[in-house]
Design a protein around this nucleic acid. Structure first.
Lengths: 188, 188, 188, 188
DNA sequence: AAATAACCGAGACGGTACGTCAAGTCTTGAG
DNA sequence: CTCAAGACTTGACGTACCGTCTCGGTTATTT
């Protein structure tokens, strides 16, 4: 099949422009024209790669987030949990808020896209608890509980409550909720 | 010297049209023109009352939700929690999903509006646990924990996970998380 | 017929505001709201008197123009013609341009109103040449020619050519057109 | 590096729709939305070409009128004048009335546009008298007088007097005004 | 080497919705 | 019944964005 191959260097500049504008003005003030202009790219080049704004934002967030695995250092359960929770809170605050906007906007019209974005949002959660699981700090039931509660409360804190996930909140989350549920779960 | 007073009957038809279209087509396919047309109202009449789509949706959801107090019947803690959780899940699924869309869309550009919408989202949560508190089924610390965890997990379930809050999920929420945290809290 | 009588002092302030705004911003940037506001009058008070913007402007121009009869002093034909032409040019430039805008805007939708405005535009023209007629400076045929040519050329100069009716133009009009036609007409 | 060039076929359909609606409903009932709809064109395509309704109408009238040169057949002065006057009266009645509406509406806010419209209104008038000039039927002074008087009286007749330029009026214009002025001018 | 075919930046295209503004009508409370 | 104030419906305005299409021009592969 002949023809000029896609210029892969375009992907990077498109992602950069998308993420910069996304964090700058928010999802719904984000326009494809402005992304194309900032990236120095034709709109067709974007639409050749992504089906629309929601898909582009999903891909951009996926790309950026994919580069950051956690890497836990603490050896005790509380320390490990705090590290993971800190990383997740920062990740969501910085990147995935935009993804959530895309999710809201796109999920009605395109269920497949919504499913893809949900996969992105979930993807790290499995990897996140792998190390504590391997170290024996966490059992599978505890890991599931963690994955169910922590993202929910972090997102709720940021979006609904509208306050940052500061250290105080994260310690409260770990000490008053997670540790008590996990300890409770380990009793006979 | 005041002129013609606002026709309060217009508020009702505007809210009705807004909510019907909101649940029908979703927040971002919702157009001011279609609301005005369905309500039989000029756009200026809407913009005289609300600064934009986000503010209108917030007011409409506020209006509709305000009419619904919980009213718990069960006398035991588990039953009471289940009732409240069921009501909240239904409320969020039916009404506040639209509000969340508005929140995402509007919160960057208008922090005051975002704050107002957060107040709306929070408003019922205090009243929600009042009866169990009065009945002695819940202590203040437990009520705070409830208000912190339940909305977060319900919203997360609906938006991020993308699955409905069915009875199975709600019982899991009550039995595996809430009750264990609340029992734990009552120990020495 | 009982009821509060119309406050005739309102007519004056409405006319004043109308004419001031008309000369200030032109016919089509003239809004009923701004007239009402400047006049310190409710819009209903205007619409109770005039059927719409075009009718109001016509009445205002009629009112203002009606107060100004010509009063020719010169005893020779050329001097008399120049005086009349000067007055008419000033009158049209200052007032009736607005009326012409109203005429254009309103004539399609309301032929009766258009007829009324044409009557206004014509009204002075009969009176204008009365004195020269009485003095024997002009015969009826000459007066008719005058009334047919002068307003046409003044309006054309102002609107189509877009230049002011300065003394040079007016003398050209009198010397090169009017006087030659009138002299010609008086020959055997 | 230029992008996609303007589709010049869009100009034609826009002009057609504009002129059809203009003659149908008149200048001020003419809406950009209806033009766009009838032309099967997005509003942006119109606004990309013309700054507003007045500019569009000016361009449309210019376009349509530009295609029509006079072509005089008569060999005597009276016949030639009548032919030209007839053509001009028809032209103004059919096309330029709309342009005059645009001129009134737009000339306050945009003097450049007003100047352009005046150029359009004047454009044919030079060419109009070229043939009689070449044939020696008219001298330059007579041609200037013609161009000054005839359009003025035709417009005045149509707009202010509100009557059509029928044959009777045109002969009056030629016999009682033009010919007498032109003959007068040729005497010693 | 030439032809082919998909790519690229740029930007015009048909649409849809936005939020504003004006026209003319209606509704207060006061006189 | 009139007044000032101002809310009402209607409908056009000009702007912004979407996702598509069309230019002239640029690479790679395939003949």
């Amino acid at each position: 099949m002949p023809g000029r191959p896609r210029d892969t260097s375009r992907d990077a500049v498109i992602f950069d422009a998308t993420l910069e504008l996304l964090t700058g003005v928010g999802y719904d003030k984000l326009s494809m024209d402005s992304i194309a202009a900032m990236a120095g790219v034709g709109k067709a080049t974007i639409y050749r790669r992504y089906s629309g704004k929601a898909a582009l934002v999903a891909a951009a967030v996926d790309h950026r987030a994919g580069a950051t695995p956690p890497a836990v250092e603490a050896a005790d359960l509380r320390g490990a949990l705090l590290e993971i929770v800190r990383w997740l809170a920062r990740e969501i605050a910085e990147q995935e808020i935009g993804l959530l906007g895309a999710l809201f906007a796109g999920m009605r019209g395109d269920p497949d896209l919504a499913a893809a974005m949900r996969r992105i949002a979930h993807r790290d959660q499995a990897a996140m608890t792998r190390q504590p699981l391997d170290d024996g700090l966490l059992d599978p039931r505890g890991a599931a509980l963690f994955a169910e509660i922590v993202p929910a409360m972090v997102v709720h804190r940021l979006v609904i409550v509208g306050e940052p996930c500061d250290e105080r909140f994260l310690e409260h989350l770990v000490d008053d909720i997670l540790l008590r549920l996990l300890k409770e779960g380990s009793r006979p």
